[in-house]
Nucleic acid binder design. Structure first.
Lengths: 219, 219
DNA sequence: AAGCTCATCAACCGATCGGTGGATGGGGAT
DNA sequence: ATCCCCATCCACCGATCGGTTGATGAGCTT
Protein backbone atom coordinates (compact mmCIF):
# COMPACT_ATOMS: atom_id res chain seq x y z
CA UNK A 1 0.00 0.00 0.00
CA UNK A 2 1.40 3.30 -1.01
CA UNK A 3 2.08 6.17 1.35
CA UNK A 4 -0.78 8.57 1.88
CA UNK A 5 -0.91 11.81 -0.08
CA UNK A 6 0.59 14.53 2.11
CA UNK A 7 -1.26 17.82 1.85
CA UNK A 8 -0.75 21.36 3.13
CA UNK A 9 -3.89 23.50 3.35
CA UNK A 10 -3.55 27.27 2.81
CA UNK A 11 -6.54 29.52 3.45
CA UNK A 12 -6.86 32.70 5.50
CA UNK A 13 -10.19 31.70 7.11
CA UNK A 14 -9.80 29.17 9.96
CA UNK A 15 -13.32 27.84 9.47
CA UNK A 16 -12.61 27.13 5.81
CA UNK A 17 -9.36 25.36 6.69
CA UNK A 18 -11.30 23.37 9.27
CA UNK A 19 -13.70 22.25 6.56
CA UNK A 20 -10.96 21.27 4.18
CA UNK A 21 -8.99 19.48 6.89
CA UNK A 22 -12.09 17.63 8.06
CA UNK A 23 -12.83 16.52 4.53
CA UNK A 24 -9.31 15.41 3.68
CA UNK A 25 -8.57 13.81 7.05
CA UNK A 26 -11.67 11.67 6.70
CA UNK A 27 -10.51 10.50 3.29
CA UNK A 28 -8.45 7.32 2.94
CA UNK A 29 -5.04 7.87 1.49
CA UNK A 30 -4.81 11.58 2.28
CA UNK A 31 -3.00 13.14 5.22
CA UNK A 32 -3.01 16.81 6.14
CA UNK A 33 0.50 17.70 7.30
CA UNK A 34 0.15 21.43 7.85
CA UNK A 35 -2.02 24.50 7.62
CA UNK A 36 -1.19 28.05 6.62
CA UNK A 37 -3.17 31.27 6.85
CA UNK A 38 -0.99 33.34 4.51
CA UNK A 39 0.84 32.91 1.25
CA UNK A 40 4.14 33.40 2.98
CA UNK A 41 3.36 30.77 5.61
CA UNK A 42 2.31 28.39 2.83
CA UNK A 43 5.68 28.76 1.14
CA UNK A 44 7.50 28.14 4.41
CA UNK A 45 5.38 25.11 5.24
CA UNK A 46 5.90 23.64 1.78
CA UNK A 47 9.59 24.15 2.27
CA UNK A 48 9.68 22.36 5.60
CA UNK A 49 7.12 19.59 5.01
CA UNK A 50 7.70 18.91 1.30
CA UNK A 51 4.09 17.84 0.81
CA UNK A 52 2.81 16.12 -2.33
CA UNK A 53 0.28 18.93 -2.74
CA UNK A 54 -0.65 22.38 -1.47
CA UNK A 55 -4.32 23.27 -1.55
CA UNK A 56 -4.13 27.03 -2.02
CA UNK A 57 -6.58 29.89 -1.74
CA UNK A 58 -5.85 32.97 -3.85
CA UNK A 59 -6.51 35.98 -1.67
CA UNK A 60 -4.90 35.65 1.71
CA UNK A 61 -4.42 39.11 3.18
CA UNK A 62 -1.55 39.12 5.59
CA UNK A 63 -2.03 41.73 8.30
CA UNK A 64 1.58 41.30 9.38
CA UNK A 65 3.06 42.18 6.00
CA UNK A 66 3.42 45.54 4.30
CA UNK A 67 1.22 46.06 1.21
CA UNK A 68 4.19 45.58 -1.05
CA UNK A 69 5.14 42.35 0.65
CA UNK A 70 1.83 40.58 0.51
CA UNK A 71 2.11 37.17 -1.13
CA UNK A 72 -1.12 36.12 -2.67
CA UNK A 73 -1.96 32.58 -3.70
CA UNK A 74 -0.57 32.93 -7.22
CA UNK A 75 2.69 34.36 -6.01
CA UNK A 76 2.97 31.69 -3.35
CA UNK A 77 2.24 29.09 -6.02
CA UNK A 78 5.06 30.40 -8.19
CA UNK A 79 7.47 30.22 -5.28
CA UNK A 80 6.50 26.72 -4.27
CA UNK A 81 6.56 25.33 -7.79
CA UNK A 82 9.95 26.88 -8.35
CA UNK A 83 11.51 25.60 -5.13
CA UNK A 84 9.87 22.17 -5.00
CA UNK A 85 9.08 20.78 -8.44
CA UNK A 86 7.73 17.61 -6.79
CA UNK A 87 5.09 19.59 -4.90
CA UNK A 88 1.96 20.33 -6.87
CA UNK A 89 -0.41 23.20 -6.19
CA UNK A 90 -4.18 22.96 -6.52
CA UNK A 91 -6.03 26.25 -6.27
CA UNK A 92 -9.27 26.24 -4.26
CA UNK A 93 -10.92 29.62 -4.26
CA UNK A 94 -14.12 31.57 -4.77
CA UNK A 95 -12.65 33.73 -7.49
CA UNK A 96 -13.36 32.80 -11.06
CA UNK A 97 -12.43 35.84 -13.08
CA UNK A 98 -10.21 35.29 -16.06
CA UNK A 99 -7.21 37.02 -14.62
CA UNK A 100 -7.37 35.04 -11.38
CA UNK A 101 -7.56 31.81 -13.31
CA UNK A 102 -4.83 32.64 -15.77
CA UNK A 103 -2.65 34.16 -13.10
CA UNK A 104 -2.78 30.97 -11.08
CA UNK A 105 -2.25 28.68 -14.07
CA UNK A 106 0.62 30.78 -15.30
CA UNK A 107 2.11 30.74 -11.81
CA UNK A 108 2.29 26.97 -12.11
CA UNK A 109 -0.86 25.66 -10.45
CA UNK A 110 -1.81 22.16 -11.61
CA UNK A 111 -5.47 22.65 -10.97
CA UNK A 112 -8.16 25.19 -10.18
CA UNK A 113 -11.30 24.31 -8.30
CA UNK A 114 -13.98 26.48 -6.82
CA UNK A 115 -15.11 26.40 -3.22
CA UNK A 116 -18.62 26.00 -4.53
CA UNK A 117 -17.67 22.49 -5.72
CA UNK A 118 -19.02 19.42 -3.92
CA UNK A 119 -16.48 17.89 -1.53
CA UNK A 120 -16.03 14.78 -3.63
CA UNK A 121 -14.91 16.93 -6.53
CA UNK A 122 -12.25 18.46 -4.30
CA UNK A 123 -11.03 15.03 -3.17
CA UNK A 124 -10.98 13.79 -6.76
CA UNK A 125 -9.07 16.91 -7.71
CA UNK A 126 -6.44 16.26 -5.09
CA UNK A 127 -5.95 12.70 -6.34
CA UNK A 128 -5.83 13.77 -10.00
CA UNK A 129 -3.27 16.47 -9.49
CA UNK A 130 -1.00 14.25 -7.39
CA UNK A 131 -1.28 11.62 -10.13
CA UNK A 132 0.15 14.12 -12.55
CA UNK A 133 -3.10 15.19 -14.14
CA UNK A 134 -4.83 18.55 -14.20
CA UNK A 135 -7.98 19.29 -12.22
CA UNK A 136 -10.23 22.06 -13.44
CA UNK A 137 -13.71 23.01 -12.45
CA UNK A 138 -15.98 22.77 -15.52
CA UNK A 139 -16.45 26.54 -15.70
CA UNK A 140 -12.70 27.04 -15.51
CA UNK A 141 -12.08 24.52 -18.25
CA UNK A 142 -14.55 26.38 -20.43
CA UNK A 143 -12.71 29.62 -19.84
CA UNK A 144 -9.40 28.12 -20.87
CA UNK A 145 -10.93 26.53 -23.97
CA UNK A 146 -12.40 29.87 -24.97
CA UNK A 147 -8.96 31.42 -24.55
CA UNK A 148 -7.36 28.82 -26.76
CA UNK A 149 -9.88 29.50 -29.52
CA UNK A 150 -9.80 33.28 -29.42
CA UNK A 151 -6.44 34.26 -28.06
CA UNK A 152 -6.53 37.83 -29.33
CA UNK A 153 -10.27 38.47 -29.30
CA UNK A 154 -11.01 37.27 -25.81
CA UNK A 155 -7.67 38.28 -24.40
CA UNK A 156 -8.36 41.08 -22.02
CA UNK A 157 -5.02 42.70 -21.41
CA UNK A 158 -3.39 41.78 -18.17
CA UNK A 159 -2.19 44.26 -15.64
CA UNK A 160 0.98 43.68 -13.71
CA UNK A 161 0.64 43.12 -10.00
CA UNK A 162 1.79 46.63 -9.28
CA UNK A 163 -0.57 48.14 -11.82
CA UNK A 164 -3.46 46.26 -10.26
CA UNK A 165 -2.42 47.41 -6.86
CA UNK A 166 -2.33 51.03 -7.95
CA UNK A 167 -5.69 50.69 -9.69
CA UNK A 168 -7.29 49.22 -6.57
CA UNK A 169 -6.24 52.29 -4.68
CA UNK A 170 -7.62 54.49 -7.43
CA UNK A 171 -10.90 52.62 -7.03
CA UNK A 172 -10.74 53.44 -3.34
CA UNK A 173 -10.69 57.11 -4.29
CA UNK A 174 -7.07 57.88 -3.54
CA UNK A 175 -5.24 60.53 -5.49
CA UNK A 176 -1.82 59.96 -6.98
CA UNK A 177 0.00 61.49 -4.05
CA UNK A 178 -1.93 59.37 -1.57
CA UNK A 179 -1.25 56.23 -3.57
CA UNK A 180 2.42 57.12 -3.62
CA UNK A 181 2.42 57.42 0.14
CA UNK A 182 0.52 54.19 0.62
CA UNK A 183 2.87 52.20 -1.60
CA UNK A 184 6.10 53.94 -0.59
CA UNK A 185 6.85 55.00 -4.15
CA UNK A 186 6.94 58.39 -5.81
CA UNK A 187 3.97 60.11 -7.35
CA UNK A 188 5.78 60.04 -10.66
CA UNK A 189 5.89 56.26 -10.46
CA UNK A 190 2.19 56.11 -9.69
CA UNK A 191 1.51 58.26 -12.74
CA UNK A 192 3.63 56.05 -14.94
CA UNK A 193 1.77 52.96 -13.77
CA UNK A 194 -1.55 54.67 -14.44
CA UNK A 195 -0.50 55.70 -17.91
CA UNK A 196 0.31 52.07 -18.65
CA UNK A 197 -3.01 50.97 -17.19
CA UNK A 198 -4.83 53.51 -19.36
CA UNK A 199 -3.06 52.22 -22.47
CA UNK A 200 -3.83 48.59 -21.69
CA UNK A 201 -7.49 49.27 -20.93
CA UNK A 202 -7.81 51.77 -23.77
CA UNK A 203 -9.18 54.52 -21.57
CA UNK A 204 -8.12 58.02 -20.72
CA UNK A 205 -9.48 58.59 -17.23
CA UNK A 206 -8.96 56.90 -13.93
CA UNK A 207 -12.68 56.54 -13.37
CA UNK A 208 -13.16 54.71 -16.61
CA UNK A 209 -10.10 52.61 -15.94
CA UNK A 210 -11.72 51.38 -12.75
CA UNK A 211 -15.07 50.56 -14.31
CA UNK A 212 -13.50 48.84 -17.30
CA UNK A 213 -11.23 46.78 -15.08
CA UNK A 214 -14.33 45.75 -13.15
CA UNK A 215 -16.08 44.82 -16.39
CA UNK A 216 -13.11 42.70 -17.43
CA UNK A 217 -12.87 41.03 -14.07
CA UNK A 218 -9.60 42.64 -13.09
CA UNK A 219 -10.81 44.30 -9.92
CA UNK B 1 -28.54 18.62 31.68
CA UNK B 2 -30.18 20.85 29.17
CA UNK B 3 -30.87 19.93 25.58
CA UNK B 4 -28.12 20.71 23.11
CA UNK B 5 -28.30 23.86 21.01
CA UNK B 6 -29.86 22.93 17.68
CA UNK B 7 -28.23 24.71 14.77
CA UNK B 8 -28.90 25.04 11.04
CA UNK B 9 -25.88 25.98 8.91
CA UNK B 10 -26.48 28.04 5.76
CA UNK B 11 -23.61 28.65 3.35
CA UNK B 12 -23.40 28.15 -0.38
CA UNK B 13 -19.94 26.53 -0.29
CA UNK B 14 -20.02 22.86 0.76
CA UNK B 15 -16.45 22.99 2.04
CA UNK B 16 -17.28 25.94 4.28
CA UNK B 17 -20.38 24.16 5.61
CA UNK B 18 -18.15 21.12 6.24
CA UNK B 19 -15.84 23.26 8.33
CA UNK B 20 -18.64 24.80 10.34
CA UNK B 21 -20.36 21.45 10.83
CA UNK B 22 -17.07 19.83 11.89
CA UNK B 23 -16.45 22.59 14.39
CA UNK B 24 -19.94 22.61 15.89
CA UNK B 25 -20.41 18.85 15.91
CA UNK B 26 -17.20 18.49 17.86
CA UNK B 27 -18.46 20.95 20.43
CA UNK B 28 -20.36 19.75 23.49
CA UNK B 29 -23.85 21.06 23.73
CA UNK B 30 -24.28 21.90 20.06
CA UNK B 31 -26.04 19.78 17.46
CA UNK B 32 -26.21 20.53 13.77
CA UNK B 33 -29.72 19.60 12.59
CA UNK B 34 -29.56 20.74 9.00
CA UNK B 35 -27.60 22.42 6.24
CA UNK B 36 -28.70 24.78 3.51
CA UNK B 37 -26.91 26.09 0.44
CA UNK B 38 -29.33 28.92 -0.36
CA UNK B 39 -31.31 31.53 1.50
CA UNK B 40 -34.53 29.93 0.43
CA UNK B 41 -33.45 26.51 1.65
CA UNK B 42 -32.41 28.07 4.95
CA UNK B 43 -35.87 29.52 5.44
CA UNK B 44 -37.47 26.17 4.67
CA UNK B 45 -35.15 24.27 6.97
CA UNK B 46 -35.75 26.74 9.79
CA UNK B 47 -39.45 26.25 9.25
CA UNK B 48 -39.26 22.45 9.44
CA UNK B 49 -36.56 22.01 12.09
CA UNK B 50 -37.27 25.02 14.33
CA UNK B 51 -33.63 25.28 15.38
CA UNK B 52 -32.41 27.46 18.22
CA UNK B 53 -30.08 29.23 15.79
CA UNK B 54 -29.29 29.60 12.11
CA UNK B 55 -25.69 30.33 11.21
CA UNK B 56 -26.12 32.33 8.04
CA UNK B 57 -23.85 33.49 5.25
CA UNK B 58 -24.88 36.66 3.41
CA UNK B 59 -24.26 35.99 -0.25
CA UNK B 60 -25.71 32.68 -1.34
CA UNK B 61 -26.36 32.81 -5.08
CA UNK B 62 -29.12 30.44 -6.03
CA UNK B 63 -28.67 29.12 -9.54
CA UNK B 64 -32.20 27.74 -9.53
CA UNK B 65 -33.86 31.06 -8.81
CA UNK B 66 -34.47 34.06 -11.06
CA UNK B 67 -32.46 37.19 -10.23
CA UNK B 68 -35.51 38.83 -8.74
CA UNK B 69 -36.19 35.83 -6.56
CA UNK B 70 -32.78 35.41 -5.05
CA UNK B 71 -32.94 35.39 -1.27
CA UNK B 72 -29.72 36.57 0.24
CA UNK B 73 -28.73 36.07 3.82
CA UNK B 74 -30.32 39.28 5.04
CA UNK B 75 -33.60 38.57 3.36
CA UNK B 76 -33.60 35.00 4.63
CA UNK B 77 -32.84 36.36 8.11
CA UNK B 78 -35.84 38.68 7.94
CA UNK B 79 -38.12 35.80 6.94
CA UNK B 80 -36.86 33.47 9.64
CA UNK B 81 -37.00 36.05 12.40
CA UNK B 82 -40.50 36.99 11.36
CA UNK B 83 -41.81 33.43 11.19
CA UNK B 84 -39.98 31.95 14.17
CA UNK B 85 -39.27 34.51 16.89
CA UNK B 86 -37.62 31.76 18.97
CA UNK B 87 -35.03 31.10 16.28
CA UNK B 88 -32.03 33.40 16.35
CA UNK B 89 -29.81 34.19 13.40
CA UNK B 90 -26.05 34.66 13.63
CA UNK B 91 -24.39 35.97 10.49
CA UNK B 92 -21.06 34.41 9.52
CA UNK B 93 -19.63 35.97 6.42
CA UNK B 94 -16.57 37.49 4.77
CA UNK B 95 -18.31 40.76 4.01
CA UNK B 96 -17.74 43.65 6.35
CA UNK B 97 -18.95 46.70 4.52
CA UNK B 98 -21.30 48.97 6.38
CA UNK B 99 -24.27 48.20 4.23
CA UNK B 100 -23.86 44.44 4.64
CA UNK B 101 -23.60 44.82 8.38
CA UNK B 102 -26.51 47.17 8.78
CA UNK B 103 -28.63 45.23 6.34
CA UNK B 104 -28.20 42.09 8.38
CA UNK B 105 -28.76 43.78 11.73
CA UNK B 106 -31.83 45.57 10.46
CA UNK B 107 -33.11 42.30 9.07
CA UNK B 108 -33.07 40.95 12.63
CA UNK B 109 -29.76 39.12 12.99
CA UNK B 110 -28.65 38.74 16.60
CA UNK B 111 -24.99 38.63 15.76
CA UNK B 112 -22.43 39.19 13.04
CA UNK B 113 -19.13 37.36 12.92
CA UNK B 114 -16.49 37.16 10.24
CA UNK B 115 -15.19 33.97 8.70
CA UNK B 116 -11.72 35.22 9.49
CA UNK B 117 -12.50 34.73 13.20
CA UNK B 118 -10.88 31.89 15.14
CA UNK B 119 -13.20 28.90 15.56
CA UNK B 120 -13.56 29.41 19.30
CA UNK B 121 -14.96 32.87 18.67
CA UNK B 122 -17.59 31.33 16.43
CA UNK B 123 -18.54 28.76 19.08
CA UNK B 124 -18.70 31.45 21.73
CA UNK B 125 -20.85 33.51 19.42
CA UNK B 126 -23.31 30.67 18.96
CA UNK B 127 -23.65 30.24 22.72
CA UNK B 128 -24.00 33.99 23.34
CA UNK B 129 -26.70 34.49 20.78
CA UNK B 130 -28.72 31.49 21.95
CA UNK B 131 -28.42 32.83 25.50
CA UNK B 132 -30.11 35.99 24.34
CA UNK B 133 -27.02 38.12 23.93
CA UNK B 134 -25.53 39.73 20.84
CA UNK B 135 -22.34 38.49 19.25
CA UNK B 136 -20.33 40.93 17.20
CA UNK B 137 -16.85 40.74 15.79
CA UNK B 138 -14.80 43.62 17.26
CA UNK B 139 -14.58 45.40 13.92
CA UNK B 140 -18.33 45.12 13.49
CA UNK B 141 -18.98 46.46 16.97
CA UNK B 142 -16.81 49.45 16.15
CA UNK B 143 -18.82 50.11 13.02
CA UNK B 144 -22.10 50.08 14.91
CA UNK B 145 -20.74 52.35 17.62
CA UNK B 146 -19.63 54.80 14.99
CA UNK B 147 -23.11 54.69 13.49
CA UNK B 148 -24.77 55.33 16.81
CA UNK B 149 -22.68 58.42 17.23
CA UNK B 150 -23.43 59.73 13.78
CA UNK B 151 -26.98 58.67 13.03
CA UNK B 152 -27.43 61.21 10.27
CA UNK B 153 -24.69 59.49 8.33
CA UNK B 154 -26.17 56.07 8.91
CA UNK B 155 -28.83 55.83 6.25
CA UNK B 156 -27.69 55.01 2.75
CA UNK B 157 -28.65 58.15 0.92
CA UNK B 158 -30.65 58.14 -2.27
CA UNK B 159 -29.64 59.96 -5.40
CA UNK B 160 -32.13 61.85 -7.51
CA UNK B 161 -32.75 60.57 -11.00
CA UNK B 162 -30.65 63.29 -12.52
CA UNK B 163 -27.81 62.70 -10.07
CA UNK B 164 -27.83 59.03 -10.93
CA UNK B 165 -27.83 59.84 -14.59
CA UNK B 166 -24.83 62.11 -14.22
CA UNK B 167 -23.00 59.54 -12.13
CA UNK B 168 -23.58 56.83 -14.72
CA UNK B 169 -21.89 59.01 -17.28
CA UNK B 170 -19.04 59.62 -14.88
CA UNK B 171 -18.70 55.84 -14.56
CA UNK B 172 -18.50 55.71 -18.33
CA UNK B 173 -15.46 57.95 -18.13
CA UNK B 174 -16.97 61.18 -19.36
CA UNK B 175 -15.68 64.50 -18.15
CA UNK B 176 -17.95 67.26 -16.94
CA UNK B 177 -18.05 69.04 -20.27
CA UNK B 178 -18.89 65.83 -22.09
CA UNK B 179 -21.65 65.05 -19.63
CA UNK B 180 -23.02 68.54 -20.11
CA UNK B 181 -23.14 68.01 -23.85
CA UNK B 182 -24.71 64.58 -23.50
CA UNK B 183 -27.47 65.81 -21.21
CA UNK B 184 -28.02 69.22 -22.86
CA UNK B 185 -27.22 71.07 -19.65
CA UNK B 186 -24.37 73.32 -18.67
CA UNK B 187 -21.12 72.16 -17.17
CA UNK B 188 -21.89 74.20 -14.09
CA UNK B 189 -25.04 72.15 -13.61
CA UNK B 190 -23.10 68.93 -13.95
CA UNK B 191 -20.68 70.14 -11.32
CA UNK B 192 -23.48 71.06 -8.96
CA UNK B 193 -25.04 67.62 -9.33
CA UNK B 194 -21.68 65.99 -8.67
CA UNK B 195 -21.11 68.10 -5.59
CA UNK B 196 -24.44 66.90 -4.24
CA UNK B 197 -23.57 63.31 -5.11
CA UNK B 198 -20.24 63.65 -3.32
CA UNK B 199 -21.98 64.99 -0.22
CA UNK B 200 -24.54 62.21 -0.18
CA UNK B 201 -21.98 59.45 -0.69
CA UNK B 202 -19.45 61.11 1.62
CA UNK B 203 -16.69 61.07 -0.93
CA UNK B 204 -14.54 63.70 -2.56
CA UNK B 205 -13.67 62.23 -5.93
CA UNK B 206 -15.67 61.07 -8.86
CA UNK B 207 -13.89 57.73 -8.95
CA UNK B 208 -14.75 56.97 -5.37
CA UNK B 209 -18.30 58.17 -5.93
CA UNK B 210 -18.67 55.55 -8.63
CA UNK B 211 -17.27 52.67 -6.60
CA UNK B 212 -19.25 53.60 -3.51
CA UNK B 213 -22.45 53.89 -5.50
CA UNK B 214 -21.70 50.42 -6.84
CA UNK B 215 -21.12 49.11 -3.32
CA UNK B 216 -24.42 50.58 -2.19
CA UNK B 217 -26.24 49.20 -5.16
CA UNK B 218 -26.94 52.56 -6.74
CA UNK B 219 -25.25 51.89 -10.04
C1' DA C 1 -46.98 82.17 3.11
C1' DA C 2 -43.14 79.48 4.22
C1' DG C 3 -40.07 75.73 3.77
C1' DC C 4 -38.05 71.96 1.39
C1' DT C 5 -36.11 69.37 -2.53
C1' DC C 6 -34.64 69.39 -7.04
C1' DA C 7 -32.80 71.29 -11.32
C1' DT C 8 -30.76 74.82 -13.23
C1' DC C 9 -26.66 78.35 -13.75
C1' DA C 10 -22.30 81.46 -12.76
C1' DA C 11 -17.29 82.89 -11.52
C1' DC C 12 -13.08 82.14 -9.19
C1' DC C 13 -9.13 79.53 -7.90
C1' DG C 14 -6.15 76.04 -5.83
C1' DA C 15 -5.36 71.26 -6.46
C1' DT C 16 -4.99 67.42 -9.21
C1' DC C 17 -4.80 64.87 -13.40
C1' DG C 18 -3.02 63.21 -17.73
C1' DG C 19 0.05 63.55 -21.61
C1' DT C 20 4.64 64.29 -23.28
C1' DG C 21 9.25 63.26 -23.47
C1' DG C 22 12.64 61.69 -21.27
C1' DA C 23 15.54 58.30 -18.02
C1' DT C 24 17.95 53.91 -15.13
C1' DG C 25 18.18 49.22 -13.65
C1' DG C 26 16.70 44.28 -12.87
C1' DG C 27 15.38 40.03 -14.74
C1' DG C 28 14.28 36.89 -18.27
C1' DA C 29 14.18 35.25 -23.08
C1' DT C 30 16.28 34.86 -27.58
C1' DA D 1 24.64 41.04 -27.03
C1' DT D 2 20.11 42.40 -27.72
C1' DC D 3 15.40 42.86 -26.79
C1' DC D 4 11.38 43.03 -23.96
C1' DC D 5 8.75 43.75 -19.82
C1' DC D 6 8.44 45.70 -15.46
C1' DA D 7 9.37 48.98 -11.75
C1' DT D 8 11.24 52.93 -10.73
C1' DC D 9 11.87 58.22 -11.30
C1' DC D 10 11.84 63.28 -13.26
C1' DA D 11 10.08 68.01 -15.14
C1' DC D 12 6.90 70.61 -17.69
C1' DC D 13 2.38 72.18 -18.85
C1' DG D 14 -2.35 72.34 -20.55
C1' DA D 15 -6.66 70.47 -19.15
C1' DT D 16 -9.76 69.16 -15.79
C1' DC D 17 -11.60 68.70 -11.28
C1' DG D 18 -13.55 70.05 -6.90
C1' DG D 19 -14.68 73.44 -3.45
C1' DT D 20 -16.52 77.90 -2.42
C1' DT D 21 -19.93 81.31 -2.71
C1' DG D 22 -23.59 82.76 -4.84
C1' DA D 23 -28.11 82.63 -7.46
C1' DT D 24 -33.33 81.62 -9.68
C1' DG D 25 -37.45 78.94 -10.41
C1' DA D 26 -40.70 74.81 -10.28
C1' DG D 27 -43.28 71.77 -7.63
C1' DC D 28 -44.80 69.93 -3.47
C1' DT D 29 -45.97 69.89 1.49
C1' DT D 30 -47.22 72.02 5.73
Amino acid sequence: MTDPIRVVVADDHPIVRAGIVALLSATDGIEVVGQAATGRAAVELARSERPDLVLMDLRMPDAAAAPGEQLDGSQATARIVEEQPATRVLILTTYETDDHILGAIEAGASGYLLKAAPPEEIVAGVRSVVAGQTALAPAIAATLVRRMREPQASAAPSLSARETQVLRLVADGLGNAQIATALFISEATVKTHLIHVFEKLEVSSRTRAVTRAQEWGML
